[in-house]
Design a binder for these strands. Structure first.
Lengths: 153, 153
DNA sequence: AGCTTATTGCAACCTTGTGGCGTTAATGAT
DNA sequence: ATCATTAACGCCACAAGGTTGCAATAAGCT
């Protein structure tokens, strides 16, 4: 039995692959790797985080710019959410089914930039003035996380 | 009657001046100008906005870095709030009395980065898990503002 | 007026993110 | 299976936002 090295690298992620294919765009190793990584992540990751996590594996690290483009593409395709953290750095997270993450609770650490999802029911959304187009709404709580609070007492 | 040019440049802002002096730090023209500007602003301003607004006047434009430092100092002194907008750029706003702005509603335009304060009563704050230190909480609503919605139909 | 030292201005640098362009490789057709 | 098409990739340089180091300046105190 002969299996190409290429096919083997994509095979472990059938769901990922089909989700990408469903958008009409091409299925590439970069997209599969990044999207899979976001889905397994605990919270939103920034470009730097992803670069580090990716460089650990056996596969060759992908180009900086390619990663930026893959992330922006995932966001544009609706497969990921893109939002700036408390330090002004963009973080990305996999977009579950739909709408689940749109009304969510986040705790943003102003020291390390980390984002923690608080799984709590959220209050109802208020009415917007005329002309404003809503994209997402979240209760944004800022402060210092337990880790950083320990380092800076 | 003789009045020094220096004193004349600070005289118009007695409240501003005493607020700065109350922090224990030195009262400088840069701090007075920037803090006065933030207090008169309609919404949170970014570094760029402030640079432009300042360069319009008769006084010589202050240094880029000095402005960054004045803004960070205002935030550290508790006279201003510092937060990243939807595009990841820091915006600053004058800190009114206290706590008023901490629980506030904002609409952040993902196209132009503009921030609009929505003066609406806000739902109550939830409990945080152990170890998390709260600094501020706001209902963060993202989307496209009427201006940008008109440009990109 | 003179002293002390917090602020300023300047220059260089860092990080995050984007645009241009030739090359590679994912897909559809042969 | 091979080929052609063109979306993605990799590499380059660049832009915007933000920070650090240090010499020169000017607030505030006596």
């Amino acid at each position: 039995m002969k299996t190409s090295a290429h096919a083997a690298s994509l095979a472990p992620f059938p769901a990922i692959e089909s989700a990408i294919r469903a958008t009409g765009a091409r299925v590439t190793p970069s997209r599969v790797r990044v999207y899979a990584l976001l889905q397994n992540a605990q919270g939103p990751l920034c470009h730097r985080d992803i670069e580090r996590l990716l460089s650990g594996g056996a596969l060759p690290a992908m180009d900086r710019v390619t990663l930026y483009r893959v992330l922006d593409w995932l966001a544009a395709a609706g497969l990921a959410h893109k939002a700036a953290d408390a330090r002004g750095v963009f973080r990305f997270s996999a977009a579950t089914s739909d709408g689940e993450h749109l009304r969510h609770m986040h705790f943003r650490c102003t020291a390390c930039g980390g984002v923690f999802c608080l799984d709590m029911s959220q209050p109802s959304l208020p009415e917007l003035p005329q002309g404003f187009r809503l994209a997402s709404a979240e209760f944004d709580i800022r402060g210092v996380c337990p880790d950083c609070a320990g380092k800076h007492p």
